[in-house]
Design a binder for these strands. Structure first.
Length: 579
DNA sequence: GCCGTTTTCGGCCCGACTGTTTTCAGTCG
């Protein structure tokens, strides 16, 4: 049978769905967890699972055995899992467990007693106060569930950037290979690098649009063609993603790219400037009062026509970028190539999937000059957090490793220490002072009132042992809202004690986000962009964080880990006795 | 379902919080 195009994200998604449905069906946790582990493993594979399966190497991946391999095979052969479809028919309530505060037991109970099978029905029941009829449910619980639904909704229908890019790349590659295609790019929110995207907008420059429309609609993975015009088609992919493909003539490329990149607010402001100059900007070009075309092939021409330098897409939100351009004050945004250090990552010692040596090797390949190993501290029992003894043992390992590396990569002895509810930092100052690098993060008590949560974090910063506040707002995109904090107060405290704030590049987090980055920058608090890697492949994701920093107007000078190792250590090296 | 092997069976990160509990089930990380 002919093999279908099924990317790793799609395989992983099928496994996630399967795990979810098995969970609410009352399957043993271990079986459910096995599928989730496998899904995570597949998500972070450096190459297509389909290929590894064909070459018989898939089962070598930790977490993937014969069961998962068989299911991956079925997905590639048939594009679906019979078992999954069966469960979806029988067990429509799987999606309920996506809501923070709803687990398998509640989902099952709500289904059995109230017939609630979808998030929509759950919301309706919670609003109507019907959930409190259930045992162990209350009005308070209903409110919590409604908040969970809000967090889910805020990202629902939207894709995380990591999910969107592989689809965009897949199409771009195919489209660029077509004869007659001059250029092809992703635009819209994808090009502006927002943390989530609604749909995928692709722009193609070609003289003849028909072959492009043809190729797009018939690409593998296209479930249906929602609309097919002469120059624009909308496709729905099997994974539920919508892709819009638009073709323009090469001489309109720049104008169209600008137009479809947006944001709408930015475009409105730009067109306003054009009107002041007696010009008109549309997606085909820039036109003077007599209707003559005065530009449009290159994007820079659009900006030049209204007296602006080219503005990077990440800034195009009408948040002052036009004024900055007019006054020559556009920031020189940080670039991914400028990041030298990665200061947040985990190993098998706690909840990472790679060993210290594997992480070091991968970090070298990723081009880092220095890294910090920051496994969890003991308070995070779920991740097998380290006590002082294990931490010191790891420190000795790192010291030996540094000797062997001979300076090719500098490995800092670090930790991601829990900020306890009272604001103390797990493991205590004495132990932490032996380290080179301390990330401190909140992993518990997310629901504290704003003042208390703020005070907790400020107190941790004031301990003086914290180098950087990890994922400062705690959000998980599409799952958990940020916890309630007064970031201004926290930034002021960080500034006072000389601590940095993290731009966590992990795609589920992207925390700080763009607006918070800008606040930190304006408060004069250094940023640290780190991957929070739990596997070697995650180390390559630093650019997700760089994009958020760029959206927050960050320059290299605002990002401390763009410094060479020596300068970085001079800035943060208040510790001593470095290996 | 995955894993390891002194193991092809019998384990599988497990402690803390929350709410509603009158002793703990459910959820989270």
């Amino acid at each position: 049978m002919h093999a279908l195009y099924v990317d790793n994200a799609a395989v992983a998604r099928a496994l996630w769905d399967l795990a979810e449905l098995l969970e609410v069906s009352g399957e043993p946790q271990f079986r459910v967890r096995a599928f989730r582990n496998a899904a995570r493993a597949i998500e972070s594979l450096p190459e297509p699972a389909a290929e590894m399966l064909r070459e018989g190497r898939l089962q070598e991946v930790p977490g993937i055995g014969s069961g998962v391999a068989r299911r991956v095979g079925e997905l590639i052969e048939k594009g679906k899992l019979a078992e999954l479809e069966e469960l979806q028919k029988k067990t429509p309530r799987g999606e309920l467990v996506r809501i923070d505060g709803v687990g398998p037991k509640s989902a099952e109970l709500m289904w059995r007693k109230l017939g609630i099978g979808t998030i929509e029905q759950l919301e309706e029941a919670a609003r109507a106060g019907r959930l409190r009829e259930l045992p162990r449910f209350s009005e308070k619980r209903e409110q919590k569930i409604l908040r969970g639904i809000e967090a889910f909704r805020r990202a629902s229908g939207r894709l995380k950037v990591t999910q969107a890019w592989p689809h965009a790349d897949f199409f771009l590659e195919r489209l660029r290979a077509l004869p007659g295609v001059v250029r092809a790019e992703a635009c819209g929110t994808l090009r502006r690098r927002r943390d989530t995207v609604g749909d995928i907008d692709l722009l193609v420059a070609a003289r003849d649009a028909a072959p492009v429309m043809e190729a797009a609609c018939n690409a593998p993975g296209v479930l249906e063609c929602l609309a097919r015009g002469d120059t624009k088609s909308s496709l729905k992919l099997r994974e539920g993603v919508q892709v819009d493909v638009r073709v323009v003539a090469p001489e309109s490329w720049g104008a169209a790219l600008h137009y479809f990149t947006g944001s709408k607010e930015h475009n409105v402001a730009m067109r306003g400037l054009a009107i002041q100059r007696g010009l008109k900007i549309n997606e085909y070009g820039v036109w003077d009062a007599e209707g003559r075309k005065v530009g449009g092939e290159e994007e820079a021409e659009i900006f030049a026509s209204v007296g602006l330098p080219w503005i990077p897409p990440e800034l195009r939100e009408n948040r002052g970028e036009i004024e900055a351009g007019q006054t020559g004050r556009l920031p020189k945004l940080v670039e991914v190539g400028q990041v030298r250090g990665d200061l947040h990552m985990h190993t098998v010692e706690t909840d990472g999937r790679a060993t210290l040596e594997e992480m070091v090797e991968a970090a070298q390949k990723a081009g880092r000059e220095y890294i910090a190993i920051t496994d969890h501290s003991q308070a995070l029992a779920m991740a097998r957090g380290m006590d002082a003894t294990r931490l010191r043992a790891q420190g000795r390992q790192i010291r030996e490793l540094n000797e062997r590396l001979g300076g090719k990569l500098l490995v800092l002895r670090g930790i991601e220490a829990d900020i306890l509810p009272d604001g103390s930092v797990d493991l205590g100052n004495q132990v932490l002072r032996e380290l080179d690098w301390v990330v401190a993060s909140v992993h518990s008590q997310f629901g504290l009132p704003r003042e208390e949560q703020t005070r907790r974090i400020v107190r941790a910063l004031e301990s003086g042992v914290v180098d950087v506040l990890g994922h400062p707002t705690g959000r998980k995109i599409g799952h958990r809202l940020p916890y309630e904090i007064d970031l201004e107060v926290i930034l002021a405290a960080a500034k006072r004690v000389g601590a940095a704030v993290e731009v966590n590049a992990y795609p589920d987090r992207l925390d700080l986000d763009d607006t918070h980055v800008r606040m930190a920058r304006e408060a004069g608090v250094p940023l640290i962009i780190s991957t929070d890697s739990h596997a070697t492949t995650h180390l390559l994701g630093i650019h997700w964080g760089v994009s958020q920093a760029r959206r927050g107007w960050a320059e290299a000078k605002d990002v401390a880990n763009t410094l060479p190792a020596s300068a970085f250590l001079a800035k943060f090296g208040h510790h001593h006795d470095r290996g």
